[in-house]
């Protein structure tokens, strides 16, 4: 087992824990739930701060609108539910009621990508990052582990405007040693290398690291970047990766459309063209099943990342 990866917790669990500490710093903070607070791990917060916790039932459009109203009234609402419901059921409320007037609402969405495994496609948020990225004024984040969740959530609360943070249902390994490792908008290089760059986000960072180890065993030095902030994207990190390593693979637990792969491709096309491949769901819904088996079936496993890296290296001129 790699030194970088240590047994961890789900980022939604880390969210539930970190929330407890936030009111001390952010006195206007409120948490809004949509009848899945048990799953979102906000129950403890509700017990500790009953006056700051509002459960508005199963009505996500209203939930988002009420959050906007609370922000208009000077509060700092954090809306928490699942990615599919927040990013799609309530998408236009996010766009017009929150992002257009640039209101101070944080949206925390669990069950990102295939991590909800056996719940099936209705609960697997595979388009959310792309949808959120497309809205002006929105910041879009997916932490790779519990520590980076703590950093990024806190920083999100200091931004005066909307932020979307995506979480995992299932446990992800710890990648960072501690907090104070991540800064919104600034990519982190986790593994150095100059032969190829693996740019990953969220739960896929662990698999990118594993792929880099497999490549290292063959003498290929892959750079691994944790691109926890999808928007604003750290363009400089992408351009440097392109110029210094000459080949790029993006790795995301999301559709290959509109997410990390698209964002990186946009930067490359406008700035520095190098061979590139995208790992992600290739224009398909997935299905029920264990997370890792799904990654394998849908071409998103460590092996697939490794393979893609070899392919882009072969394309270097």
């Amino acid at each position: 087992m790699t030194q970088l990866l240590r047994d961890g917790i789900s980022t939604r669990q880390a969210y539930g824990q970190e929330l407890l500490a936030l009111p001390a710093t952010f006195e206007k903070l409120l948490v809004l739930d949509g009848d899945i607070s048990r799953s979102m791990q906000t129950v403890e917060f509700g017990k500790e701060y009953p006056d700051r916790h509002l459960n508005l039932g199963i009505a996500e459009q209203n939930l988002m609108g009420v959050a906007a109203g609370l922000a208009l009234g000077g509060y700092l609402p954090i809306v928490s539910s699942y990615a599919v419901f927040l990013s799609m059921r309530a998408l236009e409320q996010v766009r017009t009621s929150i992002c257009y007037p640039k209101l101070n609402v944080k949206i925390v969405a669990s069950h990102g990508g295939l991590t909800p495994g056996n719940d099936g496609p209705t609960h697997q948020g595979i388009e959310d990052m792309g949808l959120m990225r497309g809205i002006p004024n929105m910041t879009v984040i997916m932490p790779a582990d519990g520590y980076s969740l703590q950093d990024l959530l806190r920083q999100a609360c200091t931004i005066d405007g909307p932020v979307y943070i995506r979480l995992t249902r299932d446990a992800v390994p710890y990648i960072y040693e501690s907090t104070d490792s991540c800064q919104i908008g600034k990519a982190n290089t986790l593994v150095d290398g100059n032969d190829v760059t693996l740019i990953a986000i969220g739960d896929m960072v662990q698999w990118a690291i594993r792929a880099s180890e497999q490549l290292a065993a063959e003498g290929i030095q892959a750079r691994v970047i944790d691109m926890h902030t999808l928007k604003p994207l750290d363009q400089q990190a992408v351009i440097s990766a392109a110029s210094e390593t000459g080949a790029i693979v993006t790795v995301e637990d999301h559709s290959i459309f509109n997410g990390l792969g698209s964002a990186v491709a946009e930067v490359l096309v406008e700035n520095y063209l190098v061979p590139m491949k995208r790992i992600g769901l290739r224009d398909t819904f997935a299905e029920s099943g264990p997370y890792e088996m799904l990654l394998e079936k849908y071409g998103m496993s460590t092996q697939n990342i490794y393979q893609a890296a070899k392919e882009v290296i072969a394309l270097k001129s």
Partner: peptide, 28 residues
């Protein structure tokens, strides 16, 4: 139920399960 490659998805999928008249799982 809910297993890998099963016809019985975690939430109803009318294209996978014979006899289902609709695909649902997002409430309302």
């Amino acid at each position: 139920l809910r297993a890998f490659e099963s016809t019985l998805q975690g939430h109803p999928d009318m294209r996978k399960t014979v006899g289902l008249d609709a695909t649902t799982g997002s409430l309302g």
